[in-house]
């Protein structure tokens, strides 16, 4: 059904049309909803002046570093928790407690501790990414089939070989699911950090534009952030399609069976 690919762009076009209609009919004041043309103009100006590429660069750097460090800690800690149940019993209440603290609430503290530079945003972002990824790592490792573990044992596999040939590929579908959630959350994490105190980044751009009622620029930053999250999500999606190609064969079971 090739027309299915057309639906999403058509929805976007319809929304754009609606937006245009509302502003053309003057239903809302411009400081609340500027016309699409004004937003595009603001976009073009910010691009020309170099401020948009600069802020994108800062936020992207925070997002990528935060994502990477959050993933790194979550993956290694998750692996240990899945492997050693005792370890899990000791640490679980603290990890859940950490998650119960609203990140938005401790973001100011992080600024106080790590300064208003990129470091505090990377940490906010890593904290937000950490929990879903940790849970998915534990679940992924736990769902490795015991029979396949037996097989690896019968083959005299070392601990490292069991990790590399069994645990990682078996957990991969769940890990990639966690990565999809984390990728979009990571953008939120960076912006939360920037809102609380920053002098660069798309979150900062929103804050400073808002304070002078430059609503079109706020929209430019919001759209850019959305696109950034979508791009990250799409990247993980294509990674998934590549790594989990074997799963798609499952859709026609028995196609080869005799």
């Amino acid at each position: 059904m090739p027309w299915r690919w057309l639906v999403s762009p058509l929805v976007a076009l319809a929304l754009l049309g609606l937006w245009y209609g509302v502003t053309a009919a003057d239903l809302l004041p411009a400081f609340m909803l500027p016309a699409p043309g004004d937003v595009f103009e603001a976009f073009y100006e910010a691009l020309e002046a170099g401020s948009l590429p600069y802020h994108i660069g800062v936020t992207l750097q925070e997002v990528l570093l935060g994502l990477a460090s959050g993933l790194g800690v979550a993956l290694s800690l998750g692996y240990l928790l899945a492997k050693f149940p005792l370890f899990e019993r000791i640490l679980a209440p603290y990890i859940v407690g950490l998650q119960a603290v609203p990140i938005v609430a401790i973001a100011p503290l992080l600024i106080i501790w790590f300064g208003s530079g990129t470091q505090s945003k990377i940490i906010t972002c890593a904290l937000i990414v950490f929990f879903p990824m940790l849970i998915n790592t534990v679940v992924g490792m736990r769902q490795v089939e015991p029979d396949l573990r037996d097989l690896m044992r019968a083959l005299n596999a070392t601990r490292w070989q069991t990790f590399r040939y069994l645990e990682v590929p078996a957990a991969l579908p769940v890990l990639l699911g966690g990565l999809k959630v984390s990728a979009t959350l990571s953008v939120i994490g960076a912006v939360v950090g920037e809102f609380v105190g920053a002098n660069a980044g798309l979150g900062f751009m929103i804050n400073s534009a808002r304070s002078v009622f430059d609503t079109p620029t706020v929209y430019v930053a919001v759209f850019t952030l959305t696109l950034m999250a979508l791009a990250l999500y799409g990247l993980v999606g294509s990674l998934e399609r590549r790594l989990l190609a074997w799963q798609r064969r499952r859709e026609q079971p028995g196609s080869f069976a005799s």
Partner: peptide, 30 residues
């Protein structure tokens, strides 16, 4: 466990992410 002894379980115990050929060669890869 020894390479002199091959074991077949009640379930085929194949790795779903590996092709037939790569399931076969797993012991050799190790």
């Amino acid at each position: 466990p020894s390479p002199r002894v091959g074991m077949v379980f009640q379930k085929a115990n194949l790795m779903p992410w590996r092709t037939v050929e790569r399931n076969l060669t797993l012991p050799l890869e190790l």
